[in-house]
Simulated scan of single mutants.
Amino acid sequence: MVAFILLGVSLSIVPRSVSTCCLPLQGQSFMDVMTSLSGSPKEKRFQQMMVSYDAISQKFAQYYLTTPEGDEVNIIEDYPAGKVYNWNRDTCRVYKSGAFQNICIPAEAKFVQKTFMGVAPEIISLDTYMLRQKNYTLFYRLGFNCTFVEIGASSPIIPQPDGLQLYVFYNMTLGIKDPSVFIPPKMCFKNASHENRQKTLFPTKSHH
């Protein structure tokens, strides 16, 4: 059973097709990443990140704020420059970025649940979509304007005791207050290793 936090009361679990739903053009959000949701306290793992997305300038940034290991990799994808910068405290790698893609809910995902959260009169409607792939079952919980609230992932290949991961988004704002979040550290321009592009966390759709 997928360990996925439900916000509110279920109204519908009848699958149906979903039309294309993409993130707003610009936005920033904090995100908690939790794994081993049903494991022992020693197995549980928590990370906090900040993600920034700008479809106008075609850039994406992902920063780790807290993590048990203290040395996770940060990412900036600069599509106009054709580069992805991937670094930790000591090393920066540069990848080819490929073509820019919007972050969207895949068209083959199915609507499975409508829920609500908040206190009246400020009630927020949430829609949940499910996507089954070869090795993964993904659940997307969406709020207003196709913004992410939660993403749940279940897979036997996730390197955790129960094969579960949960991504919780909060303090989301539209727009980019500080464009410097898309500027890589200086070490990425000195002796950086160049490799092929790596995959990112979120589902994408080609930008036209």
Rank of each mutant, 00 (worst) to 15 (best):
K83N: 15
C21G: 03
I56L: 12
I103H: 01
M1C: 09
G39T: 06
G98S: 02
K96F: 12
Y53K: 05
T128D: 01
A153V: 02
V181T: 06
V149W: 09
N88M: 03
C22A: 05
M172W: 06
L25P: 01
G175I: 05
K199E: 14
M1N: 12
L11W: 05
V94K: 02
N88C: 05
F60R: 05
Q198D: 12
Q198I: 14
I151C: 03
F60L: 07
L11G: 14
P80Y: 14
L65M: 10
P185V: 09
F144G: 07
V18W: 01
C146V: 10
Y53D: 04
G70M: 09
G163Y: 04
Q58C: 10
V18E: 11
Q47Y: 06
V33Y: 08
P159S: 09
N102V: 10
K177N: 13
L166H: 08
Q165W: 03
L138I: 14
L37V: 13
V94R: 03
S52E: 08
R197Y: 12
W87K: 01
H194F: 10
I123R: 10
Y64N: 01
V18L: 04
Q62C: 01
D127K: 12
G118W: 05
T173N: 01
Q26E: 15
D90V: 08
P121M: 02
T66C: 09
F30S: 05
C22N: 07
I56R: 11
K205H: 10
A153C: 04
S40A: 08
P185Q: 05
R132N: 14
M187T: 09
G8K: 09
L65T: 01
P15F: 07
I75Q: 13
G39S: 03
I103D: 00
I105S: 08
Y136N: 08
I157P: 12
V112H: 03
L164K: 02
P185H: 07
M130K: 14
M34S: 13
G27N: 05
F144H: 15
F202H: 06
V18Q: 03
I56A: 08
L126A: 08
L23Q: 01
F60S: 04
A109L: 00
H208A: 14
F30N: 05
R132W: 01
P106Y: 05
I105N: 06
K44I: 08
I158D: 02
P41S: 02
T173L: 00
H194S: 07
Q47K: 12
T173P: 12
Y95C: 09
K205G: 07
V2H: 15
D178V: 10
R132C: 04
E195N: 13
